[in-house]
Design a protein around this nucleic acid. Structure first.
Lengths: 336, 336
DNA sequence: AGTAATAGGGTTATCGATAACCCTAATTTA
DNA sequence: TAAATTAGGGTTATCGATAACCCTATTACT
């Protein structure tokens, strides 16, 4: 690999001069500047960012840690993050935690040893706390995405889970449903708690008693049918509608329903959080509370870079992006 | 940040000894090894990989360059790549070219300056040649994904586009279709050429004349309706079936058809390359030639790491993964 | 007992780039 | 014209880690 020393030698200057030309610092005559640049091109010089990072104590690398790249929500988020990062001159190191705390831990160590300038962090859940504390202990700026973690004050970009949940449940109620089930993520995750809360509030406001037999808290990432539908359907008074706390769960629920010969929405209404992108484009079926996932990523990187560059206010900034209720056809008036 | 020198001082040894403990090299007594390790934990030491990379001349970073993370095909590919990379102890630097040669160029420079150990490269198209040549000139190993680039011999993992296309068109013909349109990507891209070829061969084998008015070559990434459907539909003898060369185009085509009040599959059959994952899980509608995208990524990283570590045969390895025809309901017997 | 071998660990140079400071000739200024 | 600037560029140390080699007690061997 060619280094600034190679350039220096061929251009008959010192390495420092080359460095100055590269960074446009110091006083260099137009003449030598051109000569040096020409040699750089001739030799196909590419600066070694490792060396640079070592002395500058900054890498121009940000880390994006999410829980599942195959979920369209995070896919779009990643897209937004990537676009922003590129614009701002940062590279992106990528990690997928699968909502698994051990994997998340591995990535945190990787992040620390890479000396990234900052992290866009979508936590697996509440126990991500110690990972975030570790980052903080090492002075790595981060912005939390999507899920708040109790015990950590930091910049965060999240959706309005309560409002979204309330809107969905309000909508179901407006269609005449009274027995509404919630298939939720784990209560370890802030958004699951808030969606539950929004669900409960909506019911309460309409004078419907909360029935805990209609609520299941499991994982956002895997839908295991034996843990879910049977509990709901084999009840004296089964639900007429199901609110799935995210897109994955909705797909799982709908498939499981269909396998039992239960039609959606004729026999059972289903709504959920997060949209399905391509799927919805092909077949506008699922009624959802859609979140602006791309914005999550784009804004997250912006906040992060402001934080890194010190141009942010010292206080933690909390951005809450509203979700949009998109009414399609997976829910319908009860009994019709 | 704490360095090996801090450790060394506190443990009363030299920095070299610390390094030896970290890397399990050299001769260190069990006693000092323990002492050093204890100090490392106490001080929360994390090695600086920049410094390490600089002297070792290797970064343990691989680059993943794809054309669109929002396409489920690349999403799954990324997932496979990430899983493999993590298993093999590599970090992943992420880039999205959007099938844009300039963006691709930027990423190549970024890759070079990062001194990644290797690149998993999904080229935008034939003009990616110069980018690949640049990588080669700088001795960065790479494995090409999905699309061959004429002029470059290298390891490659791709699908069998001809076979897949032939299967799809065969299937349409078996349903009685004779007027079959092809909505293709740009002929700049090898897979588009091969899908075209497979399409043509299938027609020929069944004695159907190729009608170029039924073939449109545009972009895999954007479906602009005015460039597409009108040409096909406003013909003396319009097609009864459309073969879309990838999932995005299929979604575009189907939406455009529906907007015109043309039903799929009743009035027009549609099939395509690549599956839609979540979408297909929710609604098994689209008949597709599905590619094992996760395998693309996982195998790609494997080949790449073998290449980096010198355990690969010197010859370029070409892995061709078959696609699977999944018959669902977006195509049906003509006229029924 | 005297030498060779080994265990255990330290010294120094190096990877590629930059910061901080220094130097000299040419130009300006009083 | 002498002193002070300034333009243009060079020297040296440094970032954190490792390779290659060196050193000194022990221990083993003949």
């Amino acid at each position: 690999m060619v280094t600034i020393y190679d350039i220096a030698e061929k251009a008959n200057v010192s390495a420092m001069t080359v460095s100055k030309v590269i960074n446009n610092t110091g006083r260099i005559s137009e003449q030598t500047r051109k000569r040096v640049k020409k040699v750089m091109e001739e030799l196909n010089y590419i600066p070694n960012s490792n060396a640079r990072s070592l002395v500058l104590q900054q890498t121009q690398i940000l880390s994006l840690l999410i829980t599942d790249i195959t979920n369209p929500f995070y896919t779009s988020l990643a897209r937004g993050a990537e676009d922003s990062a590129k614009k701002l001159g940062y590279r992106l190191l990528f990690g997928n935690s699968d909502e698994d705390y051990d994997k998340e831990q591995d990535y945190v160590d990787m992040i620390l040893s890479t000396r990234v300038d900052g992290v866009l962090f979508a936590p697996a859940g509440d126990h991500s706390l110690k990972h975030l504390e570790k980052l903080r202990a090492h002075n790595i700026p981060f912005v939390i995405m999507d899920r708040a973690v109790p015990g950590i004050e930091s910049d965060i970009v999240s959706g309005d889970s309560m409002q979204g949940a309330r809107n969905l449940v309000d909508y179901l109620i407006s269609l005449g449903h009274r027995r509404i089930a919630l298939v939720n993520g784990s209560l370890d995750v802030s958004t699951a708690r808030l969606r539950y809360q929004g669900y409960a509030e909506a019911l309460q406001l309409h004078g419907i008693a909360l029935d805990d037999r209609l609520v299941i808290h499991k994982s956002y990432r895997e839908y295991k049918d034996e843990d879910q539908l049977p509990h709901l359907l084999e009840q004296p008074s089964p639900p007429t509608a199901i609110f799935a706390a995210n897109n994955f769960l909705a797909v799982g629920v709908i498939n499981a329903l269909r396998q039992r010969g239960i039609r959606v929405p004729e026999d059972m209404s289903v709504v959920c959080f997060d949209d399905l992108d391509l799927s919805s484009a092909l077949d506008p079926f699922l009624t959802v509370a859609a979140q602006p996932a791309y914005q999550f990523g784009a804004m997250g990187i912006q906040l992060l870079v402001e934080r890194i560059q010190g141009s942010a206010v010292p206080e933690a900034r909390k951005i809450i992006l509203p979700s949009e209720l998109i009414i399609r056809s997976s829910a319908k008036t009860i009994g019709k």
